[in-house]
Each structure stands twice: as C-alpha cells, then as structure tokens.
C-alpha cells in the first residue's frame, strides 16, 4: 500500500512555518518514512505542473501556511484544495491572517506606493525582451478559510514543532478530530504558564510598561509587572516559550473558540485592569498602549469582526 501523500505550501508568509517543519529535527525522518511528500517548494524540487498532473483528491493532507494576498496565492490554494482531501491552515497567517494581515489597515495601492514610490512594478513587466506577468494584489489580505474550505487549523507564529507533530499524528492516525478543529487546547495560555502562581488574585494595573522599559523579573507574572502579556487571551499549546524567554505573550495562537474577535476581547480584558475610575487617570494608565490595533490585532486583523480598517 502506498504511503499517504502530503503537500506543504506557503503563501503570504515569512518562512517561519517552513522552519517549524525542519525543526521537527530527527522526527522529520519519521515523517518522511510515514508519508510521501509530493510538493514542498521551499525544500523540494516539484513544480506547479506536477501538482496539476495529480488526480483530484490524491493528496491526503495539504499544509498551507501564509495569508492570501494575491492572485497567485489564491490560485495555488484553490489548486491544492482540489488535489487534497484535507487542507490544514498552518500557522497564524493562514489561520487568522497573521502579520501580513495588518496590511488591511491600508489600501493595497497606498501600500505599494509607500514601498515602491513611483517605480511600482506593473502587472505586465517587460525587460530585455522578456515579459513577465506578476500576480495581482487582492484588495485585502485574507485568511485561508475565507478563500477555500479548510478542515483544520494549526495555530502559532510559527506553530511549535510539538503541536505540528501532534497535528501530523492526529491527522494521519486512525481517528481524525472533527472538522473545523483548531489543533491545540481550547484554554488560554495561563493554564500552562510557569508563572501562573505568581499572579496576584486581585491584579489591577496602575502603569503599563513596554518590554524595553524594564528589566523584567524572571519569575513573576509579566502582567503583574505591568507588561502587556496576552497570555490570558491566547489559546495555549505553545508551552509558553516567550514567557520562558522573559517576554510577554503577543497572542500568536489566537483566541479560544469562545471568542469571536481576539482584538476586541483582549482589549476588554486588558483595559478592565486599569486601576482607576477617573477618566483622565484611566487615559494616562492606558496611554502606553500606543497602537491598540497593532497590539491586539497583531495576528488576527483579517479574521476580526471588522476585517480591517473601515472606509467611507
């Protein structure tokens, strides 16, 4: 019997998710033993035409990372959807829109102009007698499931090797989880936090600080030190590597299943902790949170209720 076929693909992403697969280390050899990797542009020499040639539904699982921000990514996502029985949105960008999703605070034309100035590349690009058709920008960045149907999600920026391994095991094992599942626990990170015991029972914050402003205590709850840690809002499963590195959680694992809008919910919980009942004083306490959108929607703007900036 032939081994199940697996594909990996990247869309608008940084490559971190690909690193994760490599970070499986020796275990990647077990993966290779168990499956046939039929498509993995970052590591293996297969072309799109190879995928086109496959029978529809012949790939067991396609892991797609990255958000969708241009026509080529959409095209590849749709192609893999046809060829694969199961599609996994792999990593924060595919699941929630991710960092590239913050582009939804601007119109893509403005972004292109800001980056390239008047020298912006055109769709048809000619040079030395050659002609190249560039992918067209979508009007907005989208998470994978807004473009194609997705069966599972693996959260994280990037997902940790451990939950990636667990996802592979779960999907290739005998009894896959119900469709639509996020393949990580459904509690918030505090559950797993090594500093959990040090959070005071009644924590209110008189002054929010930014990580560069203080030398954080290595043992104590970061929120209790005034650092904006989004652990209470964020799905667990990562085993708190940032907190172990003395940095606050920024929320890459996204919300639990009970929250519709990560940013609004996180804002609610955080602002509620401001230790004052006076308008001006509250403003002062919350002032260090200089960029609420970037802080609370860092990984999830395209899948937030609004999806991005409102326009006229």
């Amino acid at each position: 019997m032939s081994k199940p076929k697996v594909a990996f693909y990247w869309c608008a992403s940084c490559g971190g998710c690909e690193e994760t697969v490599l970070d499986l280390a020796e275990a990647v050899l077990d993966v290779v033993k168990a499956v046939d990797i039929v498509f993995w542009p970052v590591a293996m020499d297969f072309k799109e035409s190879d995928v086109q040639a496959m029978e529809d539904g012949s790939i067991a699982v396609a892991f797609i990372n990255g958000a969708i921000c241009n026509s080529h990514q959409r095209h590849m996502a749709e192609l893999l959807r046809r060829k694969a029985q199961t599609v996994v949105a792999f990593g924060a960008c595919a699941q929630l829109g991710g960092i590239p999703g913050l582009a939804n605070m601007n119109h893509h034309k403005d972004l292109v102009e800001a980056i390239y100035g008047s020298d912006a590349p055109q769709e048809i690009w000619k040079s030395n007698g050659y002609e190249l058709t560039l992918p067209r920008f979508a009007d907005k960045v989208q998470a994978l499931d807004r473009v194609i149907a997705v069966e599972y999600y693996v959260p994280g920026c990037p997902p940790t090797p451990k939950i990636t391994q667990q996802a592979l095991d779960a999907l290739l094992g005998g009894s896959p989880p119900p469709k639509g599942t996020v393949l990580a626990p459904d509690q918030a990170l505090c559950e797993d936090c090594p500093r959990r015991e040090t959070r005071p029972e009644k924590l209110l914050i008189k002054e929010f600080k930014r990580p560069h402003e203080i030398v954080a205590d290595q043992e104590k709850c970061l929120l209790a030190q005034g650092l904006l840690c989004l652990g209470p809002e964020t799905r667990s499963g990562c085993e708190a590597p940032c907190i172990k590195g003395n940095m606050p959680c920024t929320g890459c694992f996204g919300p639990t299943s009970r929250v519709r809008d990560f940013g609004a919910k996180a804002l609610s919980a955080v602002a509620s902790l401001a230790d004052s009942n006076e308008e001006l004083d509250i403003e002062r306490i919350l002032a260090p949170i200089a960029d609420p959108v970037g802080t609370f929607y860092r990984y999830s703007l395209p899948t937030s209720l609004a999806g991005g900036k409102f326009t006229k």
């Binding site: 602002a271 509620s272 009942n277 509250i282 403003e283 919350l286 609420p292 959108v293 409102f310």
Partner: peptide, 22 residues
Amino acid sequence: EGNYKCLRRFELLRRMVKEMGI
C-alpha cells in the same frame, strides 16, 4: 462599579475604533 469597567474599556476602545477609521 460596572460603569467604571465600561469607562476603562471605552477609553481604549475609542482609540482603537478611531485608528480603524471610525
């Protein structure tokens, strides 16, 4: 003091909502 909790959220939310073009 529920209204104070509302005020705290409003102070931050109105900034975020404004940033988002409202």
